[in-house]
């Protein structure tokens, strides 16, 4: 690591902020453990993804334009979410394609914006964060993280390095869990049927804990498991990496 500790501005994401603050706390703990200086800008809200994925581009632009201005001087921005990182990295430049000034800012932001597991492995070059947890753990690839950002190996390396973890792969690990943002309420029956398949795969693999890096997938799968009284426990990667049991 460089002599000067890296500075990270945390992009908490609206879901983690309001529903799963523990994810943010754990991410901060892990980053600090690795010598990173973490900052948080309370002016942040949402990246704009709900409107973007529902086709409301003007509304998205209004929300996204704020994000461009919030992190002007940040060295790295890290989000505990593959889909929010995708929104900023892949779709912001597309969203501002006709606005040269904002496009420049969007491209600069995209270069400095990382998803949590990607940042640990690719930038900090760390796999073992010093965590320990006993249990059979599996990992669900969230689609944006896997297919838009190409991040699949990094979270697995981090999980395997956790002491006490027995890592098991799901037989359909590349398959979508059915969350899909507003898809989850536009096609709730299909969304639930896909979620059931995912939870069944976890059951087949004998996983006690299903880890993912997106609060959206996790709230969908957890809500389904809770409704159906299934034993599988869902956990964000940051929570697992913060564990010292």
């Amino acid at each position: 690591m460089a002599a000067k500790p890296p500075r990270v501005a945390l992009f908490i994401t609206c879901l983690a902020d309001q529903f799963f603050p523990m994810v943010g706390e754990c991410a901060v703990e892990v980053l600090r453990r690795l010598g990173v200086e973490v900052t948080f800008n309370p002016a942040q809200t949402c990246c704009g993804q709900p409107a973007f994925n529902t086709g409301y581009r003007q509304e998205t632009r209004e929300v996204a334009a704020r994000v461009l201005d919030l992190f002007d001087d940040a060295e790295f921005i890290v989000a505990p979410s593959g889909s929010c990182a995708t929104m900023v990295r892949v779709f912001y430049p597309e969203l501002f394609a006709d606005d040269p000034e904002r496009l420049k800012k969007a491209e600069s932001l995209a270069r400095r914006f990382y998803e949590f597991s990607e940042f640990l492995v690719k930038v900090l070059k760390v796999e073992d964060v010093g965590a320990s947890f006993r249990g059979r753990v599996s990992y669900h690839d969230s689609c944006h993280l896997l297919r838009e950002l190409g991040v699949g190996e990094e979270p697995r390396k981090l999980i395997r390095a956790v002491r006490g973890v027995e890592f098991v792969e799901l037989d359909d690990y590349r398959l979508c869990c059915g969350f899909g943002g507003t898809f989850s309420v536009k096609f709730p029956e299909v969304s639930v049927a896909m979620g059931e398949d995912k939870l069944n795969a976890a059951k087949r693999a004998g996983a006690e804990v299903l880890v993912a890096n997106d609060s959206g997938c996790l709230m969908h799968l957890a809500g389904l498991a809770h409704r159906q009284g299934l034993p599988v426990r869902t956990m964000h990667l940051a929570e697992l990496l913060a564990k010292r049991e």
Partner: peptide, 18 residues
């Protein structure tokens, strides 16, 4: 209402991260 047809919805955390 569509969400809770087949799933439970998490309550907002007592305190947000901010």
């Amino acid at each position: 209402s569509r969400w809770t047809e087949g799933r439970d919805f998490p309550a907002l955390a007592p305190k947000p991260f901010r």
